[in-house]
Every structure is written in structure tokens, then in C-alpha cells.
Computed example of a mutant assay.
Amino acid sequence: MRLPDDLSAQLNALAKATGRSKSFLAGQANRDYIEREAWQIGQITQALQKADAGDFASETEVSAISAKWQRHAG
């Protein structure tokens, strides 16, 4: 994997500080990124399926959540 010089230097420093190889750290970073993105896509897909099915919050539910956040904001 080609990295910009500054990122490569940071990876080098982290590898030295942790006693891990650059390959291990890069692989872990990729794994974390892919898992996070896959989770997010899954959540979006589920939400779209619910929306397509007409499964929306009621006006009462939305008002309750709005009131809760307004109490905590002020």
C-alpha cells in the first residue's frame, strides 16, 4: 500500500512505539475501517427498508424525543 510520506512516518513511529509491524497496523486499520463502514451501510439499508415499508415514528414519538433533547440542551 502506498502512503503519503507524512502518514508513512506516523505509521513507522507507531510501529516502533507499539512493537508491531507496519503491516500488522495497516491491516488492523483497514479491518477497523471496513467493519465500521459495513456496519454503517447495514444500518442505512435497514432504515431504508423500514422507510419503504412505511415504518415511521408517530407524531407523539417524535414530540417525546424532541422534548427530551430540548430538556437536555438547555
Rank of each mutant, 00 (worst) to 15 (best):
M1F: 03
M1S: 05
M1G: 09
R2H: 05
R2A: 05
L3G: 00
L3H: 09
L3M: 13
L3F: 10
L3K: 12
D5L: 13
D5A: 15
D6M: 02
D6R: 06
L7A: 15
S8L: 09
A9D: 14
A9H: 05
Q10H: 06
Q10S: 07
Q10F: 02
L11E: 00
N12G: 06
N12Y: 09
A13V: 02
A13H: 01
A13P: 00
A13D: 09
A13W: 01
L14I: 06
A15I: 01
A15W: 00
K16F: 06
K16H: 12
K16I: 10
A17F: 01
A17V: 00
T18N: 06
T18M: 02
G19K: 04
R20P: 01
R20L: 03
S21K: 06
K22W: 02
K22L: 05
K22I: 04
K22Q: 12
S23T: 12
S23Q: 11
S23E: 12
F24G: 02
L25E: 03
L25Q: 04
L25H: 04
A26P: 00
A26E: 03
G27V: 00
Q28W: 14
Q28D: 15
Q28R: 11
A29L: 14
A29N: 11
N30K: 13
N30P: 01
N30L: 09
R31A: 13
R31F: 09
R31T: 14
D32E: 07
Y33R: 12
Y33G: 01
Y33H: 09
I34N: 09
E35R: 11
R36P: 01
R36C: 05
R36S: 13
R36N: 09
R36G: 04
E37K: 14
E37T: 08
W39D: 13
W39K: 14
W39Y: 15
Q40S: 08
Q40G: 00
Q40H: 07
I41W: 07
I41K: 08
G42D: 15
Q43D: 09
Q43S: 08
Q43A: 14
I44M: 13
I44C: 09
I44P: 03
I44L: 13
T45S: 10
T45C: 05
T45V: 11
Q46R: 10
Q46F: 08
A47M: 15
A47Q: 15
A47T: 11
L48R: 10
L48F: 03
Q49G: 07
K50P: 00
K50A: 10
A51Q: 09
A51Y: 08
A51E: 12
D52L: 10
D52C: 10
D52V: 10
G54S: 07
G54T: 11
G54K: 13
D55A: 10
D55R: 03
F56I: 03
A57V: 07
S58Q: 06
E59F: 02
E59G: 03
E59H: 03
T60M: 11
T60F: 07
E61Y: 07
V62S: 02
V62K: 08
S63V: 03
S63Q: 11
A64R: 11
S66P: 00
S66A: 11
K68G: 00
K68E: 11
W69F: 11
R71V: 05
A73I: 04
G74T: 13
G74K: 14
